[in-house]
Simulated assay, not measured.
Amino acid sequence: MTNKFEFLARWGYAARGVVYITLGLIALIGSSAGEEASTHGALSNLLDQPFGRILLGTVAVGLVGHVLWRFAQALLNADAQENNIKGYLARAGNLTSGIVNGALALAAARLVVASGGGSESGGSLAAWLMQQPFGRILVGLLGLVIIAAGAVQAWRGISRKYRERLQLPADRSDFLGRVSVFGLAARGIVLSITGGFFVFAAFVVDSKQAGSIPEALDWVSNLPWGTYLYALAAAGLVAFGVYSFIEARYRRIDAPEQADIQRGLAKASSVMNKLP
């Protein structure tokens, strides 16, 4: 480990892995028992386990670490993205991921403290956006961003681009690679489906049409061969959770030093001071 920031980043990937493995298992075997196949449902399930508060608290701290790492990727360019459209889009995706995982970390913290919290809902986010100026456009743009992010994630898996930042051991490279491809492709497709719900909600001007992972899985289950596709998508979410652990162990992380963080904060403060 080069510094504490790298430790937090790896902890964050592992925390994300716990959430997605739990989420996928709920979708596979728990939804028939009435458990909620959503990230909130996964967090609640962790809370119900032995030493649940300690486990969920550990996940919450890890998610905070993941958020900080995403912001470092986005704002400090920790991954050394090129200064072109592709690089800026990658950094924008990292920023969006940081915000989403920040909400997830907050939900986990609330459950630890109060054993409560609101359920995950794409509709509630869409409803809030709809109330803002140009709300319909904002919801539609968010949907397009989510679709693009999902497509890019699936493409990174299928094209093996994810390997560029991993150092997999030679003796396990093939197996870990297959798990990574499956997980990235499945999660990317599910993410794109949720983005489609947001675009549809903007089109019909009805925030209730927006959805998240539970609605995406329900949509998949209603397709031809839906039972099998649903099981495949749920297994893919488990695989994405395993991929998160693979990243926690084998990803190359160029963690920013304290001086880099201070320069980034100074730059952000300067920009804020110039705002009216």
Rank of each mutant, 00 (worst) to 15 (best):
R110L: 15
V112E: 02
V113F: 15
S115W: 14
S115T: 14
G116H: 07
S119P: 15
G122D: 02
A127Q: 15
L129D: 01
Q131N: 14
P133Q: 05
F134P: 11
F134I: 10
F134S: 10
G135L: 03
R136W: 07
R136E: 08
V139F: 02
V139L: 03
G140H: 05
G140M: 01
L141P: 14
L141I: 13
L141T: 14
L142W: 03
V145Y: 09
V145L: 15
I147G: 03
A148V: 12
V152N: 10
Q153M: 08
A154S: 09
W155Q: 09
G157I: 02
I158G: 08
I158F: 14
R160N: 12
K161V: 03
Q167K: 14
P169L: 03
A170K: 15
D171P: 07
R172Y: 11
S173M: 14
D174I: 15
F175H: 13
F175W: 13
L176C: 05
R178I: 13
V179T: 10
V179W: 09
S180R: 06
S180N: 01
V181A: 00
F182D: 02
F182M: 09
F182H: 04
G183Y: 04
L184A: 00
A185T: 09
A186G: 01
R187S: 04
G188E: 01
V190W: 08
V190K: 09
V199K: 00
V199F: 06
F200E: 11
A201M: 00
A201P: 07
A202P: 05
V204W: 09
K208L: 13
Q209N: 07
Q209R: 15
G211S: 00
G211Y: 02
I213E: 05
E215N: 01
E215A: 08
A216S: 09
A216V: 03
L217M: 07
W219N: 04
L223S: 05
P224F: 05
Y230R: 06
Y230N: 02
A231M: 15
L232P: 09
F240V: 04
F240Q: 03
V242A: 08
Y243I: 00
S244R: 08
F245A: 02
